[in-house]
Design a protein around this nucleic acid. Structure first.
Lengths: 340, 340
DNA sequence: TTGAAAGCGCTAACAC
DNA sequence: GTGTTAGCGCTTTCAA
């Protein structure tokens, strides 16, 4: 059906090598160039990337395995990653494993069959068992957002400093005199959940506050989870005076819950949220929040992967830690000054 | 590096054909099966899908070109599609073209080079020019969510009945006596925008209402856009008494705007929203809305694509139109009865 | 600069 | 059931 180099060769009278060189940016005699271009048009020749892959032993495909596609933090990372990789002629095969370790493993195997040149993974299985095969096959593995303990030193990674992020936020609150601080975390056991909890506990300790179990809630990183976590916090006899919510969707849910309950922010409750995405724009302009640089995460990940791909002697693994920023709004108030 | 069938052949003493047959589900003598499995384990053999693709002339890859990855409607469709396709051993390469026609065209070309077996597209370029090459190459093209006029009869498609969706919603409002009905649409010119506008106008006409230009707003299908559109509607001297918002993100933005302005729903304003996603759950349980079956859209699209792929003689194109459902809540009120 | 030829890893006749 | 062989479309020596 589709035209091949052989067809072009017949059409132009040129050898395969000449044609191949032309398509790979080599120099060809002017009149041959013209002949080739005419033939390409006439025969509608399209290079066959599959054949090229077989020959060069490079698929120019990067496999990306993520826990969930319906999460704005993840999709914005993927977007910026895919953009850069495609510009470098790498295709991205995305596998959504629905936060299921078994599916995650299958996804990795699926991708290995397809001979992906590299693997980018936001890990669901904290044991990292699913990545063994990839590591054995010798292809570069890049972790994003979540570290895997057992793979320390064996992979590169791009993460943010989660402990510091929490510390920043909670310290801000304790500095203002808050001592009852609610925390809304993601799912129990996740790397980021643990890290953000640690930061919270550290900040409390710094301030000489002993943690209250009831104030620590798990919202599953979903809008609904955040909503419900806040509902529960508001039902406590001793309500927190401040709240730190640790991702975008949950922050949205939390704000909705507060509005529904007619809780004024910051008069009745101080709030620090997470992840100011573009689409947050006009809506809560005054929210104080921790911003993750998701575009940078995607960019760093893509570039690091390109690096790993080009340096064949890749022995040393790199962990890039990006820092979060505390974006000051007006959703927190000092307990030291009385309300006007 | 990686083991090949030849290595297995050497290891087991078996011929290539036998091995190939084994891996493709053929029958092999029991003791050979055992030998093969041992060798696979020993040599860590992994089938090379690239070589297979070259030979079979099937990449088992589906290209998916979408306008935006950060849109829950789109990601939930992709999720369910990818799930099914992967189960059938098809990989999905996703290209996000950022609603840019030039990027969209590049994406299609990129995918054609990679010899995708099929193309699924939520079109950005309404002219459909970007799909010409794919059609010429004879690969199945499946449009999702948006029809392309110039391609009528040339591709299959999975869409929802947008006109009916709008009609349902607006008719509901006119039935309750509303005559000033605000409409929040996506970006001007998009297929779905046009269709939903048509449905709105039809419903008004049915009810003998002449449309007011000021009541028709474009919110870009983003949360922020919805927020701002509603802000603008609320500033009008003659405010609408009811509102129909035509996607999920904008509905969210609209609800936030109403809460910020202390507009009570439905006492002050009746609202019909769009797209009840799972994560909407507890948050606005009482919102009346139009539900698109996004999971079904994804499923239908995947299955239709699998059909197209298997029926080589694919001559007839099919357009699958799914219907929306009006999910009744308590966010609309009748103007015919006074408030209690 | 150009061409001939070998081979990437697999499948599928075909012969045994 | 199994082995031999040709060839998918390309890149890449090597020689001309």
């Amino acid at each position: 059906m589709a035209a091949t180099l052989k067809d072009l060769s017949r059409e132009t009278g040129l050898g395969l090598a000449t044609l191949s060189k032309y398509f790979n940016g080599g120099t060809v005699r002017e009149k041959n160039r013209i002949a080739i271009e005419a033939a390409v048009k006439k025969l509608r020749y399209v290079p066959n990337e599959v054949a090229r892959s077989l020959k060069t032993q490079q698929s120019r495909v990067i496999g990306v395995v993520i826990p969930e596609l319906s999460n704005t933090f993840i999709t914005s990372i993927i977007s910026s990653m895919e953009d850069i990789l495609r510009r470098h002629d790498y295709a991205v095969i995305v596998c959504d494993c629905r936060s299921d370790a078994k599916r995650e493993k299958e996804a990795v195997e699926f991708l290995l069959h397809r001979r992906v040149d590299g693997l980018i993974n936001m890990a669901t299985d904290p044991s990292g068992a699913h990545l063994k095969a990839a590591l054995n096959a010798g292809i570069p593995v890049l972790l994003v957002d979540r570290l895997v303990e057992s793979l320390r030193g064996k992979t590169s990674a791009v993460i943010i400093d989660n402990i510091h992020a929490s510390l920043q936020a909670v310290r801000k609150l304790t500095d203002l005199g808050h001592r009852r601080i609610g925390l809304v975390l993601g799912s129990p056991g996740l790397y980021t959940t643990n890290q953000r909890l640690t930061g919270y506990l550290n900040a409390l300790q710094e301030a000489g506050i002993s943690p209250t179990e009831d104030y620590i809630r798990y919202g599953d990183y979903t809008m609904d989870g955040g909503y419900q976590a806040v509902q529960a916090l508001l039902k406590l006899k001793k309500r927190p005076s401040a709240l730190f919510v640790t991702n975008f969707e949950m922050t949205l849910g939390a704000m909705l819950a507060l509005q529904h309950q007619n809780i004024r922010v910051p008069e009745d409750l101080s709030v620090i949220g997470f992840d100011k995405l573009e689409l947050f724009g006009e809506i809560f302009p005054d929210l104080t929040l921790i911003r993750q640089p998701q575009l940078s995460i995607g960019r760093e990940a893509a570039n690091l992967m390109l690096d790993l791909l080009s340096s064949h002697d890749a022995v040393s693994h790199r962990i890039v830690t990006l820092t979060t920023e505390l974006s000051e709004g007006h959703s927190v108030r000092s307990l030291k000054e009385p309300l006007p």
